[in-house]
Write a protein that binds this DNA or RNA. Structure first.
Lengths: 96, 96
DNA sequence: ATTTTATATGATTACTCGCTCATATGTCAA
DNA sequence: TTGACATATGAGCGAGTAATCATATAAAAT
């Protein structure tokens, strides 16, 4: 049985994942489909290392899943939840 | 005309506001109604100063509005948007 | 087997952010 | 107008975090 405070902590963690520009850009990209690390890195114009670090965060919080294909590892959104919340936040933040 | 990156920045700012436990507890409280600073302070068991600092952030980002009544200043949610997003995040974070 | 390519990860650093303390501002009462 | 109460705010500190650099792991190619 979770306490009210624990539930708010879970909520906080979810929003924290979404409160970074790099991660949001990744999510926005992954909404479009499945991409490997170097594709993400090139698309966002960021180093392979920082992309990998952020992807690890998204993996650890169950936002994305991976699939290996040879040397490449392909990332995609784990489910539609994050997509829904992202789009809702996006719309609200930009409708004014 | 906003660029795609600017829109993501706006989205990031919105989620950033929601990515703190104290602010989430405040929002959860203000969903219930209108409260003055000391009421919020007592309810959350936090100092008047930290509450005021966080309320300033919520004011500056148009999440809450204020109303003075004598020595007290009453805070309430500015619109239903934040409430909707908060509840969606809350539900998603806690449904598993 | 060695090299090349793709990805992951530990350590370091610079920066951000939330709390606390002290103090300022504002309102009302005596 | 002085004091008490309510709120706001600036400075400083400590904790967390995102990018970088260097290096490790893993798969494929030669």
């Amino acid at each position: 049985m979770k306490t009210s405070l624990q539930r708010i902590q879970e909520t906080m963690k979810l929003f924290k994942i979404l409160s970074d520009q790099t991660r949001l850009r990744m999510i926005a990209l992954l909404i479009e489909g499945e991409f490997c690390v170097q594709e993400i890195s090139e698309t966002l114009h960021m180093s392979q290392s920082s992309i990998s670090h952020q992807l690890k965060l998204l993996r650890d919080t169950n936002v994305v899943k991976t699939r290996r294909e040879g040397k490449n590892i392909f990332y995609s959104l784990k489910d539609e939840h994050i997509k829904t919340i992202y789009q809702m936040g996006y719309d609200h933040a930009n409708e004014c």
